[in-house]
Computed example of a mutant assay.
Amino acid sequence: MPRPTCSRCRRPLSHCLCALIPRLDSRTRVLILQHPDESGHALNTARLAALGLVNAELLVGETFGDALAERLADPAYSSLLLFPGAQAERPAPQSAEERPLQLIVPDGTWRKARKLLYLNPVLESLPRLCLPEGLTSRYRLRKAPQPGALSTLEAIVETLARLEPERRFDALLRPFEALIDGQIAAMGEQTYQRNHGAGHE
């Protein structure tokens, strides 16, 4: 029999994260495009980002058609894709005089995120932002596919902090860290150290 689950954070009621999820304002709108394979993961960081930001939305699918076109056509925002690329620029502080940004964030493994771009060609035409190399993930349960790789939530927090340095977005990481601590507690400290501890390759 399945355990009762919170309808908001999708965690078991005994491990509900809602009390830790903030409601933060941002001038930047965040639109997360989540591959369906990610939506059922226990560590669904994109959902935490969408719940914690007032000006954020999570769409789940492989092709987004009219829903994506409608959001990209909104004249109130200038849209950028958060994804590496040859012409990608680093996030920089935005002034109040500039049109607010709409940050489009693909959520999935690198392979699935690239597939989202392929299946939604309009994304390929957007200017890109990417974070600098050398950042360290707090995601202690999964080896990063490459140095500097962050979870979706961490990448959003880091990007917003650079776009809007006058605001603080660290509170978005509280449920994420609690989620990881809970997973480590469930597996046991010895198992965690053996499989994920310092020096583990």
Rank of each mutant, 00 (worst) to 15 (best):
R8N: 00
L160Y: 13
V54D: 06
I180Y: 06
P106E: 01
R47Y: 00
V30Q: 04
I104M: 14
A144M: 04
A186W: 05
T28F: 11
L103V: 00
E70D: 15
A149Y: 13
G199F: 08
C18V: 01
C130P: 11
R3L: 03
R29H: 08
I21N: 07
A113E: 10
Y139E: 04
H35A: 14
P2S: 15
L135C: 02
A50Q: 07
G61Y: 13
P2D: 08
P22E: 13
K112L: 08
P121I: 00
L31V: 13
M1H: 10
G148I: 08
A50T: 07
T109Q: 00
L59D: 14
A185W: 10
L72I: 03
Q94T: 03
Q183L: 15
A46F: 10
P2Y: 08
Q94E: 04
E38L: 04
L68P: 09
F169E: 04
P4H: 07
W110Y: 09
P145S: 12
G52Y: 01
S7M: 07
H35G: 10
R167I: 00
Y118S: 09
A42V: 15
E166P: 04
Q190K: 13
L160Q: 11
I184L: 07
L141M: 13
M187Y: 08
R8W: 00
L80D: 00
I156V: 15
L31T: 13
R27T: 04
E201V: 09
P121V: 02
L179E: 08
L24S: 10
E62G: 10
R194L: 15
E166S: 15
R138N: 04
P132I: 01
L31W: 11
D74L: 05
V122I: 07
E166Y: 10
R71S: 06
R3A: 04
N195A: 10
G134K: 02
F83R: 01
A73S: 12
L59G: 12
S125V: 06
L33I: 05
A49W: 07
N55H: 14
S125E: 11
P12V: 00
R114P: 10
T28P: 06
Q193T: 01
R10C: 05
A149G: 09
Q193W: 02
Q193E: 03
G108I: 00
P2C: 05
S78H: 11
P106S: 01
V54A: 14
Q146L: 14
E57L: 06
A42K: 15
A155M: 01
F176G: 11
L131M: 08
R111Q: 12
T28N: 14
E164Y: 01
R10N: 08
A42E: 15
P100A: 09
E166A: 12
P100F: 11
Q102K: 15
R10L: 13
C130G: 14
N195L: 11
G65K: 05
D74G: 07
A73D: 07
Q190M: 10
Y139D: 05
L53C: 14
T45L: 06
R128L: 00
E89R: 10
I21E: 02
L13K: 12
E124Y: 01
S7W: 06
E158V: 04
K115Y: 14
A42T: 14
R99F: 02
